[in-house]
């Protein structure tokens, strides 16, 4: 079955028809060509598909696109305009928190959601917030450093 949904993705309104069985991840990647959001497992375990939905980090592989009707979605593509990247993204670069890069968009989105609800996360808060984002390259140390770095910068801005 198909139905028409309306949603906002990276501040841009969309209305289109979608198959009931398609996931939000499939729609973002195939329909909207937002391929920065990755699929690493399709079972909500790896976090590569993390996007922010109505302010909360969620795994888009476990959400039907029809469920996203009326929601506000943010993806990695919405985190930068041309060269103007977010402080989280800059922190990932500065700390060397990127290797193969496949987990990176999900990591950035989880970090963004964390810092919005908790601007001063402890080490433990960071580990908990990112425990659903698997990375096989970095061993996580530089990623944790990047979150701290971004939190410091953001704190400094206030």
């Amino acid at each position: 079955m198909k139905r028409t949904i309306s949603l906002t993705v990276n501040n841009r309104p969309y209305t289109f028809e979608v198959d009931d069985r398609k996931t939000l991840l499939e729609v973002l990647r195939k329909r909207l060509s937002l391929t920065g959001t990755k699929e690493g497992c399709g079972e909500g375990e790896c976090g590569a598909c993390t996007v922010i939905m109505d302010g909360q980090a969620v795994t888009s592989c476990l959400i039907l696109a029809v469920e996203a009707d009326g929601t506000d979605i943010e993806t990695i593509e919405g985190q930068s305009i041309d060269e103007d990247i977010s402080d989280v993204q800059q922190a990932f670069i500065d700390e060397g928190a990127v290797q193969c890069g496949f987990c990176t968009p999900g990591m950035v989105m989880s970090t963004e959601a964390l810092l919005r609800r908790n601007p001063n996360p402890s080490d433990e808060d960071i580990r908990v917030a990112l425990a659903g984002n698997l990375c096989r390259c970095t061993g996580y140390y530089t990623i944790i450093d990047a979150v701290k770095n971004a939190a410091n910068k953001r704190g400094g801005k206030k």
Partner: peptide
């Protein structure tokens, strides 16, 4: 709840 799953899953 904290021991239930990842943060993203617990949001849903």
């Amino acid at each position: 709840c904290k021991k239930h799953s990842s943060h993203q899953i617990r949001n849903r």
